[in-house]
Design a binder for these strands. Sequence first.
DNA 1: CATGAATGAGTGTTCATTCAT
DNA 2: TATGAATGAACACTCATTCAT
Lengths: 221, 221, 221, 221
Amino acid sequence: MIGLKEQAGTYNMEYNEKQIQIIDSAEKLFSSNGFEGTSVRDIAHEAGINIAMISYYFGSKEKLMEAVFQKRTLNAQLRVENLMQNEALSPIQKVFTLIDDYVEKILGQPEFHKIMMREQMLIKNSTISGAIFELKKRNLEYIKKLINEGQKTGAFKRNIDVALMMGTLTGTANNFICSESFYKSVYNMEDRSEEVFQRYMKKKLSHHLKTLFKATLTYDA
Amino acid sequence: MIGLKEQAGTYNMEYNEKQIQIIDSAEKLFSSNGFEGTSVRDIAHEAGINIAMISYYFGSKEKLMEAVFQKRTLNAQLRVENLMQNEALSPIQKVFTLIDDYVEKILGQPEFHKIMMREQMLIKNSTISGAIFELKKRNLEYIKKLINEGQKTGAFKRNIDVALMMGTLTGTANNFICSESFYKSVYNMEDRSEEVFQRYMKKKLSHHLKTLFKATLTYDA
Amino acid sequence: MIGLKEQAGTYNMEYNEKQIQIIDSAEKLFSSNGFEGTSVRDIAHEAGINIAMISYYFGSKEKLMEAVFQKRTLNAQLRVENLMQNEALSPIQKVFTLIDDYVEKILGQPEFHKIMMREQMLIKNSTISGAIFELKKRNLEYIKKLINEGQKTGAFKRNIDVALMMGTLTGTANNFICSESFYKSVYNMEDRSEEVFQRYMKKKLSHHLKTLFKATLTYDA
Amino acid sequence: MIGLKEQAGTYNMEYNEKQIQIIDSAEKLFSSNGFEGTSVRDIAHEAGINIAMISYYFGSKEKLMEAVFQKRTLNAQLRVENLMQNEALSPIQKVFTLIDDYVEKILGQPEFHKIMMREQMLIKNSTISGAIFELKKRNLEYIKKLINEGQKTGAFKRNIDVALMMGTLTGTANNFICSESFYKSVYNMEDRSEEVFQRYMKKKLSHHLKTLFKATLTYDA
DNA sequence: CATGAATGAGTGTTCATTCAT
DNA sequence: TATGAATGAACACTCATTCAT
């Protein structure tokens, strides 16, 4: 309990092996079965630890959820910021990089993003949904700047709804991870390994989004 | 229990007043609080009926969920079929109609679509996720035909990934209903009535998707 | 664990600083929230020591309780013995001194006496309730002697039930500490400091009991 | 649950057989082992009912406690009121009746009064301790009137602290039920049946208190 | 000598469901 | 047909205690 208070809310908290085990198991189960659909017993069993440890380490099931969230969100922000400041890339190249990054991230960690989606969907505002809100707002600002850049140089057309474009990016990717089996069937890849399928889809999804964005950002209707 | 077996799985089942009350309450609560986050007691209370009625009428909480799903999905299919057969519309007009239809439907019944999303996300295949799968497959075939039509007339370019286009349509719309409060904030409409905001967003979202689709379908990179 | 066995049951055991901290915190919390209502975590936190120390020093929560009891009871006995042997006082003066002593003791350490009351009430015989039993028996004998003295000199009337008189003394005082807020309200002293109220009540209670005892011991019905 | 709300707080609530079983078992166990020392599982087992029934019928363990309290307190008040209005009795006769009543009640239901004592002792104000507070206040007023009556007729002396007299009455009786085994030993009645001992002690305790009160109320120091 | 980590049994409560009527 | 009563399993969480260091 003592350790708990010291760590709560900090970003540099370092988890020990058991805590990481718990967080990973929680991530997996939350995203498979939902927050409510996952019991602390399930998590403890999956992680191979005693039930009481979860309360011991994280205080509560919800706090554990927050830990899952924080641990994963941490680095995402930094990457976007760096990209924006890279002056070697043209606006459209930046957009493409953004797409590649996002597709890579979301297809590489589908479980985690499912959790985030689920949290967003809830009406009652959890700590987490608030954090997601802030994250999106920040990202929106960065991307707005990026689009503006392109518009100034004439590379992008005017009248672009950046928020909805962002919604299309995340929405399309989220849609994919929620419908993996559907896409597997569509592309006749039911028998391929998960890895092969994922690599294939990363390419496809990335290409699709790039086409989409390039057309929309540059094509004058 | 007797009535149950006769009804299960049929499409033309007619529900009595109480059953409809139950289904409506269930839809509302499931989408607000999730499937696991909603208790049968909550549903019974919301519907103003006895707890036991739910098991009595629907057999189980899950079966009730299926009933919610079936009731709402029923008509959707017919509309798509009709649209496809309408020879008065050009392919792009059909695409636009499809978009309008979908936006109208999803923003008009966000609760229901949230349920569907949640079900899709689950790993363990429920009856419902299977039904969603089939629904999507059918829709995909229709839309593929529609795109082909356009490609034949030269209105649409080649190399279009219809499945992912569909994913973009549904994904963008789903993303919106999951992030309503985010968009409200982005468009500075926190103080507007729910109705006004919804009407505004229907237009915006529809326009965005049309631009997106027109550019992507017709612009040759 | 090693030190434990040596200490258990002895009367002259000397506690170190930490142990005294623990005992004091335990006394405070036990009397506020009851034995079952107090967790070792609470005690550890109150005492500012590690949870494990309690088991380490005292073996168990119950043994800690016994330590609380023993520490406080130790000196009480000696004072009664001394009083009885004081030949300078008349029987009624001894009774009055006894009353003053008891009131002083019980109002000065209400927490501790609440614990004792609680232990006495329990059906299942704890080590402590046994110790209380013995304590009361010894005290009864002393007081019987005292009353007999007075009866021999004719100062006290015959037919006095000493056990019940003792019950009245302790019962009245105990009743007070269990109903402090009631008495505070009765005497309109809600706003006075705890100290002022306690001093006031010591006087009142002492006077009341003296009147009671004098009347009962000397008044011939 | 529905029935619960209708009944809560009412005085005329009628409990069904199972509810009474639960209340009786709860009373027994609470008074033996304390509130915290009694688990709902214990109560369920003692009452021979399912654990869940306790929450079902009473909402919570605490509410059950309140039910125990309310059920028993109900009639006590009425009896005191009636006694006060009885014009056939002299003040001292009323006091004696009060004593007889109280002794009868408390020795007849020692378990229940132990619960009340325990609740009173707690620092954190429960609903019950509040109810006890009110009960005592009301009773104090009645008894004050009674004493005043006696003082007007000259039967009782002046300068009587009614609150503390009441404290002596309840304190002495409470002390007895908390120390039954002590008194059994004192009066050498360890081998007598519970019934015989109780009858004997009712007489003794009643006599003691009457002597005490008569002496104190009438003897002019 | 001292403690953070860990445990398994226990807590009160809520769950979806079934039973008796 | 309809329901209040009842159930056993499960829930998140806390407990006093022990262990490894």
